[in-house]
Design a protein around this nucleic acid. Structure first.
Lengths: 292, 292
DNA sequence: TTTTTGTCTTTTATCGTCAAAAAACATTTG
DNA sequence: CAAATGTTTTTTGACGATAAAAGACAAAAA
């Protein structure tokens, strides 16, 4: 196999979801814009829709003939890019399987296990190495350094340094900046989630990421915003395998976020620092607890 | 071509340089240790030396028959790893040629120009992307973000944050720590270089890196020490294309380093902070000047 | 019995190839 | 003539293949 056509499949599914019976579709460039793909892919989508009898297509005339059925969609697992597949599989192994620090990682074995070519795995490992969890021995294998307490501490140290600075920069932004609107929206989502936290606490992870990423954008520093990728990956997988007390932890974090948001609005540096430190300290604590 | 045998070539040259006429060579594992290669490679080296009449080799008997001639060595350019070749070529293009921000980077063209396969280039770009100078558009090309003033400022901001913290950690280390000996050696090298700075100022770059890396090791944080790779690459290439006033700049930096080292010895936090800030501010200033 | 050598196996590094997707160019249509 | 469609070219994404290098195991020597 060479490249699979997951871009087509994903965009096709997205396009199907937008079809409205009887309506006319916009132009090809317009569709490409909406779906985030090239016109080449748009035309492949239209061809297929036409073949499947979903639309009639003749030059500018594109009319929806029938509503899409579930069977028209590509299966979800076929829409993932190889990159995502490899990342998920690797992380699952890290979480579920053998992950003693010092263990060596075998590219070929990994590729076989996941069912992809070696270059996909290689490229993933290179990209992943910047997270500080694996390391390459030149001309030889990769070594797993592992989710150890020292990893957590080093990560937390940088995180706190960066976020304190970003939070101060955020608080100092003029109230006319559109970023405040986004913060208001996030605040509202926190209030909404707080009401249903007992059942919907799993949604917190995504909201947490949105909130912290927003704060980091205020730093206007690519190294700071990029570093949040490391945090996000670690937290994402940390949430996956540390379910103990998840509900309460998230409830506490929501309250801390709300106080933190209030502090940002106040614009007072000392208040911001206190709220930020409190929240980051408890985040660090839970991460450490889950590792020992 | 597949992999070239540059590991062999480099190790062979290193082994040649160590040959002493009439002496007996140590065991294969011992040689591997010394040269930093596997026994497989050691045996290839011994085979070749034997064929070339440099040594006699029979099991444990390995005797040097004659001193190596210059012609026995592999040419230097054949001993570089592909990774190094690609990095150097890419950087040269960045420095010498077209490098307007926003420019797109073509993998195939780059591979052709350098004379390597596309995967080597791809892997290099992935590794290089963590330096914040290029960015990938998924399913499409890489974009050059460029050595812009904002890049320099963002880099300097992180650098200062990290180094201030590392320097404080360094100063707080007990005087029994072996790190102080290494600092003494670096200090002595500064004094030595200061005397001949007019002619030898080019050696400063390497000394600078040694000094700052040592300071960062005191942080005991992988993200901080890793970040110095970014600094090192940027400074290395910055030195390549900004020769204006190089001699004076280096002379000034040597004085700043010496004051900085003195501050570390003093163990006083305020003194350390002042010396560190002064030095980093002037480093930032020269980098910025060279970019506008 | 430990170290060294001889031999065999495994793994990485790198390439060329080819379909998918993007991008560029040419032609048509309103 | 500007925007949309039709067509061709370019570029990326992924694979399998293969020599170099590492690593493992067995036999021999000290």
């Amino acid at each position: 196999m060479t490249r699979q056509n997951n871009v087509l499949k994903q965009a096709y599914n997205a396009a199907l979801a937008q079809l409205e019976h009887g309506a006319a579709l916009p132009s090809e460039p317009e569709l490409g814009q909406r779906l985030g793909v090239s016109r080449t892919t748009v035309r492949s989508i239209l061809s297929r829709m036409s073949e499947e009898g979903l639309i009639s297509w003749d030059k500018r005339q594109k009319t929806v003939l029938r509503a899409p059925k579930p069977a028209d969609f590509f299966p979800e697992e076929e829409t993932d890019s190889l990159t995502e597949v490899v990342e998920r599989a690797f992380m699952r192994r890290l979480v579920e399987g053998s992950r003693e620090p010092g263990m060596q990682i075998n590219e070929l074995e990994l590729a076989r296990a996941i069912g992809v070519g070696t270059s996909s795995v290689r490229e993933f490992l290179i990209r992943f190495s910047r997270f500080g969890l694996i390391e390459k021995r030149p001309n030889s294998h990769w070594v797993l350094k592992g989710f150890t307490p020292s990893f957590a501490l080093e990560l937390a140290e940088i995180r706190e340094m960066f976020e304190l600075r970003s939070a101060q920069a955020f608080a100092a932004l003029p109230k006319s900046d559109p970023i405040w609107h986004e913060l208001d929206r996030i605040e509202a989502d926190h209030h909404a989630l707080r009401k249903v936290v007992d059942s919907e606490f799993k949604q917190f992870s995504a909201l947490d990421e949105r909130f912290h990423r927003l704060i980091h954008t205020a730093s206007l520093n690519r190294f700071i915003t990029d570093f949040y990728d490391v945090i996000a990956v670690v937290f994402h997988h940390h949430y996956q395998w540390n379910k103990a007390g998840e509900r309460e932890r998230n409830a506490v974090a929501i309250e801390e976020h709300l106080r933190y948001i209030g502090a940002l609005h106040s614009g007072d540096a000392a208040t911001v620092e206190a709220a930020c430190r409190t929240h980051l300290a408890s985040a660090r604590k839970t991460m450490l607890e889950s590792m020992s």
